[in-house]
């Protein structure tokens, strides 16, 4: 299972859990399954079927350009980060 790192600002949703193992072959499935375990994550992360524009997903250390369809492997690390604004 992929290891999801819960951001500090979202740990109220995970009852203080900082890391959660979640099944899923891509980001969409990981978020869906995380929301099954801890309801509320999908609302925080997803808008109109896409990762919210102010949130970035990093898989194994790298921000993914593919969003919800990015592949996730069983030993992947998944991070939800603030998307960089300011126009870099």
């Amino acid at each position: 299972m992929a290891l999801v790192f819960i951001p500090s600002l979202m740990q109220k949703l995970s009852n203080g859990e900082q890391r959660v193992s979640v099944e899923g072959n891509n980001v969409r499935q990981v978020i869906d399954n995380l929301d099954e375990i801890f309801p509320g994550f999908k609302e925080r992360l997803v808008e109109d079927g896409r990762v919210k524009p102010n949130i970035a997903v990093a898989i194994d250390g790298e921000i993914t350009p593919l969003g919800m369809i990015e592949k996730v492997s069983t030993d992947s690390e998944v991070h939800f980060l603030p998307a960089i604004s300011g126009g870099v």
Binding site: P7, S8, L9, M10, E43, L45, I55, P82
Partner: peptide
């Protein structure tokens, strides 16, 4: 981080690591 605090403010967002 995806949550609207509802607090009217000049602070548009708070980020934390």
């Amino acid at each position: 981080l995806g949550k609207d605090t509802g607090v009217v403010s000049n602070v548009a967002s708070h980020t934390q690591h």
